[in-house]
Design a protein around this nucleic acid. Structure first.
Lengths: 341, 341
DNA sequence: TTGTAAGCGTTATCAC
DNA sequence: GTGATAACGCTTACAA
């Protein structure tokens, strides 16, 4: 229980151990060219005095902050916070701190690339955010390393799944059960900034086309990767003159919304409508949702690791890491009960 | 697109606007004693040069970091991230940054009160974490303001719900439907650090005792406020010789796990077992879970606001803010189908 | 192997 | 109302 006031500085440790502050700095950071006996003495002093280097001073002198920033479109989505959990665990183990930003407006977006953020963090992990060339350049020139989760990029490393394949797995599964009229919930409305939905739509179309079916754009309905979005999209699809017998939702949360809309109409899943999601959300097992599984936490831990690697070797080349996926069959998909029309 | 290298400093702005750095600092921070014309000129220069003060330098000189840290037991819980969303929104609006820590080990806990964290943040928001006297003292002497969400405290402000009342509402509802044998899922196993479960158990017992029923400890089963915890607790309760006809789960996530366990046994909700949760999770409406609603995001925004208030007036007294609650009746509760034994 | 000292970019305390 | 200038606590050449 220290008294209020000035805290222990490197100078205190230097005095206590009878060496200069420079030596203390070297000793404590494990730099070479320090006599073992000296290092030991310094460490002992630091420990006894409960010394902790001031991060702001270190940042000012060295330019490095041992902090990484993470930017997500929102904080109330399961996916984003799950990624964050993966990021945090790896960062903490490496002695880095995590700064979190929700990028939900243009001003927030500007703050990410221009504002003081670039001086506060050595690296930036963006999730489901697509950087413009200017934004990338600004970050690069400020010396901020970037790793992207969700969206690919040529200028920095990224971790994502093969989104076309994700959709193909889902739709192939539905087709194999006999479905021919398959709805799509979730191709989103912001293609400028985020291309996951577009890739998944491509995968969806690929399978239909390969099977010789014509793509009916009426069956593709935007949704916000959220429960509400899924409900809205499904409501629309089910009101069609010729409604789908199955719906591929672009996330499990979207799928939950779809299921809700189905139930609200007095229909049953999967008897009347089959549903497939993506993620393998914690609740999917509870409600028996068939889904395309991906380890979301791993997205985060891999991203953090790629970033840390980049810190130790800035010359390392940008990689595109693909997380594995798998179809998990549960109870929301079955053969269509009736052949319609 | 600036070139790589040194960024714009206060000196550059000073040169550009023809005043000293001291004046620039004053002008830009809105301090008094600056001629309006000067201030305008400085602001114009800063804008044009795209100047942003270095947070580390400011922190070093002023002692304030315009950053707050948030510590949660884990990042993969809906509750915590929802609180975080509320915190982030308020902080961002006030120009503060958010540092996130998962406190899932003793070393993480130590880092929170001793390590460099205290030099990185002006304030700390803890969620469902109970500080020891020593920890509180350490934080206080380091000048870090604390606000607690979930756990109350005498030394700093807190925001929470009336947890006894939460449980009472839930159990009274069950009793009014005719249930007499009511299970409790979730009183946790870490009473040293977190007293929400204990208060909820008190509320649960209060209602039973008021009704003249005897409390059967066999019906009280720990659970980790998670889906898995709920399943485990429910499995145990349902295997009792005289199983409950209803279960009060301490969170919606716990309730989902309870429901799963009920279904796994071939039983139905609510026909065989009624279930009530707490939170009003986004998915509760989807599955029709009866619950005690609380605005979780608001927990976070209120906490952040209390902290910011404390920054402007450190002498402000510690308050205990109680967030409102309400019973939301849905489809998981009904009268017990059979009067047992 | 160790010490000296010059920064790093601000803020704050004085004078003026 | 404005300007010097001394901190703030550390890192890092450069010397020794």
């Amino acid at each position: 229980m220290t008294s209020v006031g000035r805290s222990v500085t490197i100078q205190d440790v230097a005095n206590d151990s009878g060496v200069s502050v420079a030596t203390v700095s070297r000793a404590l950071r494990g730099l070479p060219n320090v006599a073992p006996s000296t290092r030991e003495r310094v460490q002992e002093s630091a420990e006894r005095l409960d010394y902790h280097p001031d991060p702001a001073a270190a940042r000012l002198a060295s330019g490095r902050s041992r902090t990484v920033a993470m930017a997500v479109p929102s904080l109330d989505s399961w996916y984003f916070t799950q990624v964050m959990a993966g990021v945090e665990a790896v960062l903490t183990a490496a002695g880095y701190d995590l700064l979190v930003f929700a990028i939900d407006s243009d001003s927030a977006r500007r703050r990410m690339t221009q504002g003081p953020l670039v001086k506060r963090a050595d690296g930036l992990i963006i999730v489901n955010i697509k950087l413009s060339a200017d934004e990338s350049a600004a970050l690069a020139s400020a010396g901020v390393k970037v790793v992207s989760v969700g969206a690919a990029s040529d200028s920095f490393s990224s971790v994502r799944v093969d989104d076309e394949r994700v959709a193909e797995l889902a739709v192939e599964h539905l087709m194999s059960l006999g479905h021919r009229r398959i709805g799509l919930a979730g191709h989103g409305d912001d293609p400028m900034k985020f291309d996951v939905p577009l890739d998944r739509r491509s995968g969806y179309r690929n399978v239909l086309e390969r099977a010789g079916l014509t793509v009916d754009e009426e069956l593709e309905r935007g949704a916000g990767f959220s429960v509400a979005g899924g409900s809205e999209a499904a409501a629309h699809l089910l009101d069609l003159d010729d409604p789908p017998t199955a719906i591929f939702a672009m996330s499990d949360e979207t799928a939950f919304g779809v299921m809700r809309a189905v139930w609200d109409r007095g229909l049953r899943v999967p008897e009347d409508v089959s549903v497939v999601g993506v993620d393998d959300h914690e609740f999917s097992a509870v409600v028996g949702l068939t889904t395309i599984r991906q380890d979301v936490t791993e997205h985060g831990s891999v991203a953090a690791r790629l970033l840390l690697d980049r810190f130790v070797d800035p010359a390392i080349e940008a990689t595109k890491y693909a997380v594995p996926i798998a179809l998990i069959e549960r109870k929301t998909t079955s053969a269509p009960a009736v052949i319609r029309h």
